[in-house]
Design a protein around this nucleic acid. Structure first.
Length: 301
DNA sequence: TTCCAGGGGTTAG
DNA sequence: CTAACCCATGGA
């Protein structure tokens, strides 16, 4: 049986559902969403109940159906806002594409990746946990660790043959036992970071609204850097991926350096001046530049 | 075998 | 202040 379409969102210019879908389904086994038969599935807690939604794209409209959960007015409004933020529907990418076209070695991206948006990690807590998990290990292993964490401390919703997980609440992780996380192959360091981070959220020392209230990028970055386990890379990654700062660069990122060298922008990984020159050209669009450079590292399909 | 992955903290000099 | 070391696993 087929659930009715409950919500339609018009697709903006320079948006490709397929490109976004491809990125979200790179074969890395991300447990926070599911891609199946051209649809995107995700579970979340709206604050007035948990639900699992299906997102598809037909005739220039993003269409939302609800295989599990209540289709209240509140939930539908929450979903609409959630999806706009998740897939960055309100962004106009034209200025970014003009900048790409001005750099010879990057111009191909405007056609190769046309319409690709930066999918957000809407939850600040989840984004911080994820970036700490992903530090210094390969992505395959990082996704494995995240899945073990989420399947143990999070919750799930199943509808038909689709199961989606909801990321653990800070309270659940704050009370996590070290031995359990060790069994999952987390390092002692990361266990300490994650549990302390969860405690900070639970105590209300850190949260999204607190960061949003700060006046500048530097202030928000500073606030994040106070957390143990959060250095410049992690802070800037989270600012880019969760807070949607347009000009955030995860300096020192291995993949970023690799892509800059591969495109002939840096002579080698130490040629920081060349990278700086490129960043200046992309003022206000540095986050998207980094994201498209990451995208370029993936194997062609 | 060795080196490096979407780093960061701690300690030594 | 910078450098060396540690963490943890897996892919190349």
């Amino acid at each position: 049986m087929k659930a009715p379409v409950l919500l339609s969102l018009p697709v903006p210019d320079l948006f490709s559902f397929d490109e976004c879908l491809w990125f979200l389904d790179r074969g890395l086994d991300d447990c926070m969403h599911r891609v199946q038969d051209g649809y995107l599935y995700k579970a979340l807690d709206t604050g007035q109940g948990r639900l699992l939604f299906q997102l598809g794209c037909r005739e220039g409209q993003l269409q939302v159906t609800l295989p599990a959960g209540e289709a209240s007015v509140f939930n539908l409004q929450y979903l609409s806002g959630y999806i706009r933020e998740w897939l960055h529907l309100d962004a106009g990418l034209q200025p970014f594409y003009r900048k790409l076209e001005s750099v010879k070695s990057l111009a191909y991206m405007t056609t190769a990746f046309r319409g690709l948006r930066l999918p957000a990690i809407n939850s600040l807590f989840e984004a911080l946990c994820w970036s700490i998990i992903g530090q210094q290990i390969n992505l395959t292993f990082a996704y494995k660790l995240k899945r073990r964490l989420v399947e143990h401390y999070g919750t799930s919703i199943t509808a038909g043959n689709v199961t989606c997980f909801i990321f653990p609440e800070p309270a659940a992780l704050a009370g996590a036992e070290e031995a359990v996380l060790r069994e999952m192959q987390f390092s002692r360091q990361k266990i300490n970071y994650l549990v302390a981070l969860a405690a900070a959220f639970e105590a209300g020392v850190m949260d999204r609204s607190r960061l949003d209230a700060l006046p500048s990028f530097a202030d928000r970055q500073q606030a994040l850097l106070q957390l143990k386990g959060v250095g410049v890379w992690t802070a800037n990654y989270v600012l880019m991926k969760s807070l949607r700062e347009p000009g955030s660069i995860p300096h020192g990122d291995a993949g970023l350096l690799q892509a800059l060298v591969a495109h002939g922008i840096m002579k080698d990984r130490k040629d920081l001046a060349a990278a700086e020159r490129l960043y200046r050209k992309f003022k206000g669009w540095e986050s998207y530049l980094v994201f498209y450079l990451w995208r370029s590292l993936a194997p062609r399909t």
